[in-house]
C-alpha cells in the first residue's frame, strides 16, 4: 500500500520549463465587459504598457504546509484518484492523447503527414525547445511585459529572458540580418490594434511541441488589442511551403498584473541534463 501510494503520488510528476503561468492556457478572444477605460499615449494610440499575465502563477498557492511537511504540488485541476501500474507510461499516453486531440493544429499539406509523425514521435530528440533553444515566434506566445514608447514597442518575455524591439514608425523589414528565432518584427496600428508583421524566422524552430516544423517562408502577423485592463493576443501564421492555408492561433486573453510581486524577474538559465539519460523515445 505504501509503495503503491508512493508511486501514485510520484509517478505523476511532470516537470515544466521555466515559468508556467504566462499564457499557456488558450482562452476565448472575447474580452470580459469592463468599465476600465483603455489608457492612451500622447499620440492617441492605446497604451499597451504593463505586465500581462493570466494570474495563474505567482499568488496562486502550489504548496501545502502540514506540520513539518511541505507538499509542493504540480497542479492538475480536478484530478481524480488514480490507482494502477505503469504510471509513468500512463502519464505519457495521456499526454500524447491530449496532444492528438488538440483542437487547433497547423494545416500541414497532406504529403507532409509522414514527416510530421516522425518529428512528433521523436520530439524528445528533435524539439529545439527541449534542448533549451528558444521557442521563438509564434510558439512563445504573448509577451509578459510591454513597454510602449513613441515609434517603438518593446516586448519582454520572462520565461527565457527574451526581448523583442518592434518599430512602429513605419519602417520596412530590414534586410541586413540573419534569420533569428523571433524573426524581424515591424509594427503598425490597425485602428486600436497593434499588428506585428514578422518574417525572417529561422527554420530551425518549431511552432509547438508536437513536431510542428516550418520552412523559411514562415510569416506571422501578431495582433494585440487592449480593452481596459485586458489584452487580447491573436496571431495568423502562414507557411506556403508547408501549409494548405493560414493558421490562426487560438487567441489568448491576458490581464494587467498590478501587484509588485508580479514584476518580471530574471529566469535561471536553461541547462538540459536529461536527454543523455533517456533510454527510450517516450515523451509527453
Amino acid at each position: 500500500m505504501r509503495t503503491r501510494s508512493l508511486l501514485a503520488a510520484c509517478a505523476t510528476v511532470v516537470v515544466a520549463l521555466g515559468s508556467l503561468s504566462q499564457g499557456q492556457t488558450p482562452t476565448p478572444a472575447t474580452a470580459p465587459a469592463t468599465v476600465t477605460p483603455t489608457p492612451r499615449t500622447a499620440d492617441g494610440k492605446p497604451d499597451l504598457t504593463g505586465v500581462w499575465g493570466t494570474g495563474g502563477g505567482v499568488g496562486v498557492p502550489n504548496s501545502v504546509q502540514k506540520g513539518d511537511t511541505l507538499v509542493i504540488v504540480f497542479q492538475l485541476e480536478g484530478a481524480d484518484p488514480f490507482e494502477g501500474k505503469n504510471l509513468f507510461q500512463e502519464l505519457d499516453r495521456r499526454g500524447s492523447a491530449r496532444k492528438a486531440a488538440a483542437p487547433n493544429k497547423p494545416p500541414y499539406k497532406p504529403e507532409l503527414a509522414a514527416k510530421l509523425k516522425e518529428a512528433s514521435d521523436l520530439q524528445s530528440k528533435l524539439d529545439p525547445a527541449f534542448y533549451c533553444k528558444p521557442e521563438g515566434v509564434p510558439r512563445m506566445g504573448p509577451p509578459s511585459q510591454i513597454v510602449q514608447t513613441p515609434g517603438q514597442v518593446v516586448f519582454l518575455y520572462e520565461g527565457r529572458n527574451t526581448f523583442r524591439v518592434i518599430p512602429t514608425d513605419g519602417r520596412a523589414h530590414r534586410d541586413d540580418v540573419e534569420p533569428t528565432w523571433n524573426g524581424d518584427g515591424v509594427g503598425r496600428w490597425e485602428g486600436d490594434t497593434l499588428a506585428v508583421d514578422v518574417t525572417n524566422i529561422i527554420d530551425e524552430s518549431w511552432l509547438g511541441p508536437d513536431g510542428w516544423f516550418h520552412s523559411d517562408a514562415l510569416h506571422v502577423v501578431e495582433r494585440l488589442r487592449r480593452e481596459g485592463d485586458t489584452l487580447i493576443y491573436n496571431a495568423t501564421v502562414e507557411d506556403p511551403k508547408m501549409f494548405t492555408g493560414p493558421w490562426e492561433l487560438t487567441p489568448r486573453t491576458l490581464r494587467l498584473m498590478r501587484n509588485p510581486a508580479d514584476a518580471l524577474v530574471e529566469s535561471p538559465p536553461c541547462i538540459e541534463r536529461s536527454a543523455e539519460n533517456q533510454v527510450t523515445n517516450d515523451h509527453h
Binding site: 516537470v15 520549463l17 509513468f88 505519457d92 499526454g95 511541441p209 533517456q278 527510450t280 515523451h283
Partner: peptide, 12 residues
C-alpha cells in the same frame, strides 16, 4: 491542464 511546456517523459 498540464502546461504545454512539459519537459522529458519520466518513463524515458
Amino acid at each position: 491542464n498540464v502546461p504545454a511546456l512539459a519537459h522529458h517523459s519520466l518513463f524515458a
